[in-house]
Amino acid sequence: MSRDKAIATPSQTKMYLAKYGFTFKKSLGQNFIIDVNVLTNILKAAGVTKDTGAIEIGPGMGALTEQLALHSENVLAFEIDQRLAPILSDTLADYSNISIVYHDVLKADLQKIITQHFKPNQRLKLVANLPYYVTTPIITKLLMAHLPLESITVMIQKEVADRMAAQPNSKSYGSLSIAIQYYATAQVVLNVPKTVFMPQPNVDSSVLHLTYREEPAVHVEDESSFFALVQASFGQRRKTLRNNLSRHFKGRYDKDAIEAKLRSAGIDGTRRAESLSITEFAHLANQFTT
């Protein structure tokens, strides 16, 4: 399909919207991409090649799906909105290497569906323009499910992308940064203006590239305790680590016991959570679980 007929143009998008009388559902966070250059840059950042299997979430009208079909071996897309079925059947009719599953990805058995659609040991990458309202639950599920994915490259709200990729001693750094970077390396690879979407969202977007780690970034004795401690440490950002931990462990550890744990981990309790690296958080959490 030639570039001038690509789905990701304002004229093609408007034509299909009119043809099927489709109306955007705000509750589903539907913002369709209308710029092929942006899609090309996303595929480049994702490292999609002809031997790659691609997974997409929220194909919408098929703009990104089409480009994935052109540049990868095969595509599996999850779409929650059944109203898009006739449109996608039309826009993607020329491609035999696309499978669309009409299912909520948060409720789907991803391991099972991936096994059914791809060859064993096929290189798999997830590439998507995610609905903003479910960005964090979707990415968290993808990272925790131990799927056979090499990487995740997603267009998401810029503020959230910045938080996921943030490093210590920055405003954006917080418990979300650590939760994501525990499982993957994170990098913001592209900033995208509102003008490449229809309808235009109220916020700017960024493309976040996550590469799965073979092992978590740090060793922790108990993951749930580690994440709970991290979240509590950022509970009130302006307060010291000692104060936030005292609140978190109230009734379990007194202030002297918490101070002793901090000393054992080699951490000054007057520091704020945003100054601690993921390694320091792991050392501290392990003090409370051993």
Rank of each mutant, 00 (worst) to 15 (best):
D268L: 11
F227S: 08
T185E: 11
I180W: 00
D254H: 09
M198F: 09
D35P: 02
D81I: 07
L68K: 03
L70W: 04
S72L: 04
I138Y: 03
L68F: 03
K261C: 15
E214K: 14
K125I: 15
I42L: 12
Q82F: 06
H248V: 01
I100V: 10
I7L: 11
D4C: 02
V154E: 06
R271E: 04
L276A: 04
A145F: 00
F32T: 05
L210W: 02
G269I: 09
T153Q: 09
A69L: 10
I7F: 02
S264I: 00
N74A: 13
I55K: 08
Q157C: 08
P193V: 08
N97Y: 09
T240H: 08
R272I: 06
S89E: 07
K261M: 11
K119W: 10
V160C: 02
L68R: 07
A77I: 15
N41I: 00
R237M: 09
S205Q: 04
V105Y: 13
S89R: 13
I156S: 03
K261Q: 06
N121Y: 09
F197D: 05
K19M: 08
T49C: 08
A46H: 07
L229E: 04
D254F: 03
A260R: 10
L284R: 06
H117G: 07
Y132A: 04
I278W: 03
I33P: 00
V36Y: 00
Q231N: 09
N286R: 02
V189P: 03
T13R: 02
V196R: 03
Y173M: 11
F288Q: 07
L124P: 07
G174E: 13
D162N: 13
L84K: 10
K19D: 08
T136S: 14
H219P: 00
G235Y: 08
D204A: 07
I80S: 10
A6W: 13
P131M: 07
L70K: 14
I7T: 01
A108E: 12
Y102A: 12
N97P: 13
K261E: 01
L147E: 02
A6G: 03
V203F: 13
F227H: 04
Q122N: 05
N243D: 09
L276Y: 04
K141L: 12
G29L: 11
V203C: 08
T289S: 14
N169Q: 15
Q82L: 06
V38S: 06
N74P: 00
P59L: 12
N191G: 12
Q187R: 08
S96T: 14
L70R: 13
Q30S: 02
I87T: 15
T13C: 10
D254W: 05
K158D: 09
I180R: 01
T153S: 12
T240Q: 12
I42R: 03
E221F: 09
Q231W: 01
Q116N: 14
E150S: 15
H71I: 00
E274R: 02
T23M: 10
G47Y: 01
R83W: 01
S96R: 08
I80G: 05
Q231K: 13
I98D: 01
S225N: 10
P120D: 11
S246C: 12
A232F: 12
M164V: 00
H283M: 05
E79Q: 11
F78A: 04
A232H: 08
T9C: 05
K19C: 01
Q111S: 13
A85S: 15
L276W: 04
D35H: 11
F24R: 11
D94T: 02
G53R: 06
F234R: 10
P201M: 07
